[in-house]
C-alpha cells in the first residue's frame, strides 16, 4: 500500500480510503454530514474492468464522481499510474479519465448537435489543427460507437436512448482516455438494447484497451463485463473479489442476498437455491447504525457487529470481505 511502490505496482487507478461527506441541512441552523462514501479503496489495472454493485443510494455514483474530482473528496487519495491526482493537477488527467453518465437524456446538451457534443472534448483540449481534421475525428468516433455519420448535424432530441448513450460514449472516447467511469450506463435503456450497449463496451475495451469502473445494480450485467466485482452497502465496500469467485463463493451476507435475487437460467440450480429476502429497509444514510452498517438487516448479526465496524480483510486470493461472522 505504500506510495513508493505505486509507480511499479502496475495499477492504472488506485483509490485509497476515499470519503465523501455531504453537509445536509437538517434544521434551520443545524447541518448533518451525509456519509455518501465512507472509506472506499480499490485498484484497477490497465484494460481491466472493476464492477461496482449495490442498491441505489449506496454511493456508487458518488464514488465515480469523487474519483474524477467532480466532487472534492472529503478525504482519501487517488492515484493515476502511480501519481497522486490532486485538485491542482486534475486538469492534466481529464484526458486520461472520463465518464459515461447514467441518464442519456440529461447528460447531453439539447442545444448542441451530435457533432458539437462529441467535438467538445476535442475543442477543450485542442486535439485538432484544422476543421476537417476535427470533423474526421468526430465521424471516426461516431462510426466507432455505431452511429450513422449522416446524423452528425442532428440535435439529440431526435435520438433514442440507446443512440444517445452511444453519443455519450463517443464523447468520453474523444480524448482517448485510459480509464472510463461508466455510471450505470445501461440502467435507463430497454433490456434488448442493454445487451447491445454492454457488448459495445466490451468491444471497445478489446479494441482500445481502456479500463472501466463499471457501476450497475444488475449483478448479471456486471458479472458479464467485469474482471473483478466490488459490492457496496451504505457508502462502504463489503466485499470485493474476482468476478467468478464472487459469484460462486459470496461470503458477505449482503452479497449472498443480492445473488439469491438474481434470476438463474438453469432450473436445476435455481431449485436448489433459496432466496434470501432482506428484512427491513435500508437505514437512512443520515442516521447510520453503529458498527457494521448492514447489521440491522443481517441474519447473523451479533453484539460485536453493533459495537465495532468490521475491517475489510483478505480471505485468500484477494477475496476481500468486511464481516465479523463470515
Amino acid at each position: 500500500m505504500s506510495n513508493e511502490t505505486n509507480g511499479k505496482s502496475g495499477y492504472l487507478v488506485e483509490v485509497e480510503d476515499l470519503k465523501q461527506h455531504f453537509p445536509i441541512r437538517t434544521g434551520f441552523t443545524k447541518t448533518t454530514l451525509l456519509k455518501a462514501v465512507d472509506g472506499v479503496s480499490f485498484k484497477i489495472r490497465p484494460g481491466e474492468t472493476l464492477g461496482l454493485v449495490g442498491e441505489s443510494g449506496c454511493g456508487k455514483t458518488t464514488v465515480g464522481r469523487t474519483l474524477l474530482r467532480l466532487y472534492e473528496p472529503t478525504d482519501g487519495r487517488i492515484f493515476f499510474e502511480g501519481n497522486e491526482v490532486t485538485k491542482s493537477n486534475m486538469r492534466e488527467y481529464r484526458k486520461e479519465m472520463q465518464m459515461v453518465f447514467q441518464d442519456p437524456y440529461s447528460s447531453l446538451d439539447p442545444r448542441m448537435t451530435v457533432e458539437d457534443i462529441i467535438g467538445e472534448p476535442l475543442d477543450v483540449h485542442k486535439l485538432y489543427s484544422t476543421k476537417s481534421e476535427r470533423r474526421d475525428k468526430i465521424l471516426g468516433l461516431m462510426s466507432l460507437v455505431g452511429l450513422n455519420a449522416e446524423h452528425a448535424t442532428r440535435y439529440v432530441h431526435e435520438f433514442s436512448g440507446g443512440q444517445r448513450q452511444r453519443i455519450g460514449i463517443a464523447r468520453a472516447l474523444a480524448v482517448d482516455p485510459k480509464f472510463i467511469v461508466c455510471d450505470e450506463p445501461v440502467s435507463a435503456l430497454d433490456v434488448s438494447i442493454q445487451a447491445q450497449v454492454v457488448n459495445m463496451f466490451e468491444d471497445l475495451q478489446k479494441q482500445l484497451g481502456v479500463a472501466y469502473l463499471f457501476i450497475a445494480h444488475d449483478l448479471l450485467i456486471v458479472h458479464h463485463i467485469s474482471d473483478k466485482i466490488a459490492v457496496m452497502y451504505l457508502g462502504r465496500m463489503v466485499e470485493m473479489a474476482d468476478a467468478d469467485e464472487l459469484m460462486d463463493n459470496p461470503m458477505h451476507p449482503y452479497t449472498q442476498s443480492l445473488l439469491s435475487a438474481v434470476p438463474i437460467p438453469d432450473p436445476e440450480t435455481a431449485r436448489k437455491q433459496k432466496r434470501i429476502i432482506l428484512e427491513g429497509d435500508v437505514p437512512s444514510p443520515l442516521n447510520m447504525p453503529s458498527g457494521c452498517a448492514f447489521r440491522t438487516r443481517c441474519r447473523y448479526a451479533t453484539e460485536r457487529c453493533s459495537a465495532e465496524c468490521p475491517p475489510f480483510t483478505d480471505r485468500g486470493n484477494g477475496h476481500m470481505v468486511a464481516c465479523w461472522e463470515k
Partner: peptide, 22 residues
C-alpha cells in the same frame, strides 16, 4: 443540475466555456 454540465466539467472545460456554450 443537468449531467451535461458535469460532463463538460469531466472533460475539463473551463467555467467560462461552460457558461458560454451550455
Amino acid at each position: 443540475s443537468n449531467e451535461y454540465i458535469l460532463a463538460a466539467r469531466a472533460i475539463g472545460a473551463p467555467s467560462g466555456k461552460i457558461i458560454r456554450s451550455h
